[in-house]
Design a protein around this nucleic acid. Structure first.
Lengths: 320, 320
DNA sequence: CCGCAGCGATAAAATCTGCTCATGGCAATT
DNA sequence: AATTGCCATGAGCAGATTTTATCGCTGCGG
């Protein structure tokens, strides 16, 4: 089955709309014989005459009348195709798939997404969350998202963009003996005999907590292992034990206390892709980097952090 | 603006559906480089990458995801276009525009259309009626319909197909002194002193009546000029005066009398087109000729003629 | 009636497009 | 390390599309 060309369909529609081969050829900036040829070719393709050539006009045959609306529709879809491509290239449309770890989607991402939505209301973001940076990296490697945001990947060959440093805090209840230290900081070793609000085994923060405590010379005993990252600071403030969280995921109206670990605990955040990213992904990464630079992921000023709920369900479309 | 080709869109869709360039190329019976080239060309046309090439798979970019549904839709329309063309060529679809004179649409055409509909239920007929054969011919010459049915056109260069002869009858009321002639015929001159049920000036039957009466040696006085062709036999049966009608337009349950004019008055009916007609028009004309040959437009057997109403409005879609 | 304008079809030449074959580079698997 | 899987790129060729030139037909106006 030979298929018509968009060119032929465009010729047909223009001949019908102008009422003549000659005027259609002018309008389309081709010569009349080219148009005549292509009309013949189209008629051969569909298996019958579409136009009756009258001395001073043309007229659709029954087959022509049946075919014309579909010719128009196909051309309209091609036009739409072009329009959505342009809109995506111009950051006015399209959908971006972003993958990240739980803590990032609680911390730095919400204000970033808010800013993005304000500037590019036509672009949708689809977010996928992973509990552990390793799983994020594996998903990204296997083609799961357009852009990953999280701790720097290991042995990654594609483009990596450094966003900044995420700073961690110790959370204690307000009435803890260490809560009102003038320095506002605490050495991990001073919490060695505490039972901790730890994290579920598959959460990357569990590894991090174990690692920094090991470096301080002790192994943290778990009072509870939080399944949801956002629950950890709340449980710690409630007195179940200290916990370690990225400072910027802590809610503003928080009845616990944040102390700086001494020495400080930081983690570099990056945005990375497999290959040279497409324009929309580049634009989003630029926006992300600008926002994080303007609002470093350190200790919160209370006024800058909005109220939070639990992490959104996986794959949920956050915007629009 | 460069436009994509259907081929390129087909390539895109197949790559996405098969998940690989190589398998898509196999499925489409082209080589992989051809496909690779065309994908590159398509991406250049739309202004950005549509596919991310992973080591063992491909993945749509945001722009690719935006574009894909429109690619599918355009291909679907091309397929529909082909389908409707085929259906029209196979007499299963399409719409035919038929032009005729009032008397034909009362007489020979209804059973023809009924038969056509039974055999080709998917084909629609659009009927246009004209009061006079000259107007029918003029309309046809100016491109008004696909096919004309009526008296043979004068000085016509296009294809003409003879259908047969339409026979005329004199209509009188049942109690007319001439009503029960054993011969069942009457010479026009015997009605010379009557006032007639004539036709409106623009009706071709007016010319015909005047012409045949002039040949018989008199000029018919009009008691009334019927605007609707179908009204004439009814008015004559009601006693307003004799009239002359194509025999086959007379209703079956008719309380008037039909007499054969002596000598007989006949008119050749034809189907004609401007140029060599398209397959659907040919098929309809064939059907028409067959039907008229099987049921000549002469004096009716009462059982074969259905009840009738007034002529349908112009341009009304008769079927479906 | 004739000349001219309007209009689409056809042929030949020029140009463009789409495909194949050959090959290279990279990643994954054995 | 060798092999397989997979896409990209370049060169060449055949077919498709367009342009230029011309013809034939119809309609219009003088």
């Amino acid at each position: 089955m030979a298929i018509p060309t968009f060119r032929q369909l465009e010729y047909l529609v223009t001949v019908v709309d102008t009422g003549s081969f000659t005027r259609a050829a002018e309008q389309l900036h081709v010569t009349q014989p080219a148009l005549s040829h292509q009309m013949r070719a189209l008629e051969s393709t569909v298996g019958g005459p579409l136009l009756e050539r009258l001395p001073r006009s043309v007229r659709l045959t029954p087959m022509g009348r049946a075919v014309l609306p579909h010719a128009r529709a196909a051309l309209a879809e091609a036009e739409r195709l072009h329009t959505v491509a342009q809109r995506t290239a111009g950051l006015e449309g399209g959908e971006l798939e972003v993958a990240t770890v739980y803590s990032v989607s609680l911390g730095i991402l919400p204000p970033v997404l808010r800013g993005w939505r304000r500037r590019h209301p036509g672009v949708r973001i689809r977010l996928r969350e992973y509990p552990h940076a390793d799983r994020l990296q594996a998903a990204m490697a296997s083609g799961r998202a357009d852009l990953a945001i999280g701790p720097a990947p290991t042995a990654w060959e594609g483009p990596i963009r450094e966003l900044g440093v995420e700073e961690f805090a110790i959370v204690l209840p307000a009435d803890d003996p260490l809560a009102d230290r003038p320095s506002g900081s605490v050495a991990l070793i001073d919490l060695a005999d505490r039972t901790w609000v730890h994290y579920a085994a598959d959460n990357g923060l569990a590894d991090l907590l174990d690692h920094v405590c090991a470096q301080a010379g002790f192994r943290p005993q778990a009072a509870i292992r939080a399944e949801q990252t956002a629950a950890a600071p709340l449980l710690a403030a409630a007195g179940l034990g200290p916990t370690l969280v990225p400072a910027n995921i802590v809610p503003p109206h928080f009845d616990g206390v944040l102390l700086r670990p001494d020495p400080p605990i930081r983690r570099t955040l990056t945005a990375y892709t497999r290959t040279r990213p497409d324009p929309l992904t580049v634009a989003f990464a630029d926006h992300l980097a600008d926002q994080v630079r303007a609002n470093p992921a350190g200790f919160p000023a209370a006024a800058t952090l909005p109220a939070r709920t639990d992490a959104p369900a996986r794959g949920q479309n956050l915007l629009r």
